Amino acid sequence: MKNKYFPFFVDLSEKQVVVIGAGSIASRRVRTLLSFADHITVVSPEATEEIAGLAAEGKIRWIKEKYSRERLADADLVLACTDHPEVNSDIHAACKCLGIPVNLCNDRTRCDFYFPGIVEKDNVVVGITASGSDHHLARQVREIISSALEKI
């Protein structure tokens, strides 16, 4: 039997979240985090229009440079979202040494945490996962919960 994931809710409002990479996966993760984290820094020489727009609006900080370990120094939470497995691996190793929880977009076996499907209504936040085994089922459950919360 596959391990089930324990739902763990954490206050990110004063935490430093660092995202290395600024492609489509990073954009999705940043979009999810915006409701929860006040201090999001994206490190990447280039970015999607969404990341660039969020930075221009002052919602996130975008550092337009390649990854370096120095960018992890003040991080409380790190997301490795590059297209380069060797860079993501280095981010993972550095975070492990520094005791920083890390999520790798290309290797779920080395993630300290996962991104659930999120449903929000007012102060109610619901996280949904099918433990990585059935994304379609998780999406269906998210839609059902979202619909139910709209009726409240």
Rank of each mutant, 00 (worst) to 15 (best):
K66I: 06
K66V: 10
I60A: 06
L12Q: 06
V102Y: 00
E120S: 14
A52S: 15
A47M: 04
A47L: 04
E86H: 14
N106E: 06
D112L: 01
Q16P: 01
V102P: 00
G117W: 07
I118R: 06
G23C: 01
E46V: 05
S24I: 13
P116K: 03
K59S: 14
V42F: 05
V30S: 04
L79A: 05
A37S: 00
E70C: 08
L34R: 14
T48R: 11
K59F: 06
E14D: 15
I91V: 15
R29L: 13
V119C: 05
H39D: 13
S35L: 08
R108T: 13
S35Q: 10
I91S: 00
A26G: 09
L104F: 05
E70Q: 14
G23P: 01
L34A: 07
V87Y: 01
D83V: 07
T109V: 08
A37E: 00
P45V: 07
D11S: 02
A55F: 00
R110I: 00
A37F: 00
I40A: 02
R71Y: 14
T41H: 01
H39I: 09
L77E: 10
W62F: 04
Y114H: 15
N123P: 02
D90F: 02
C105A: 15
D112Y: 01
V125S: 07
D74C: 05
V19S: 04
I60T: 05
K59M: 11
I20W: 04
G58T: 11
I100Y: 00
R71W: 13
E120T: 14
N103K: 06
N106K: 00
T48M: 11
K64N: 08
G23K: 01
I25T: 14
A56Y: 04
R110K: 10
E50T: 13
C95S: 11
K121A: 11
V119N: 02
R28T: 08
L12D: 06
K59Q: 13
C105K: 12
V119L: 04
A52D: 15
V43W: 08
N123K: 12
E57P: 05
E120C: 11
V17W: 04
F36L: 10
D83M: 08
S68W: 07
V125Q: 07
E49W: 12
I20C: 12
D107M: 09
D11V: 00
V78P: 05
V78I: 10
L33D: 05
R61E: 12
I91K: 00
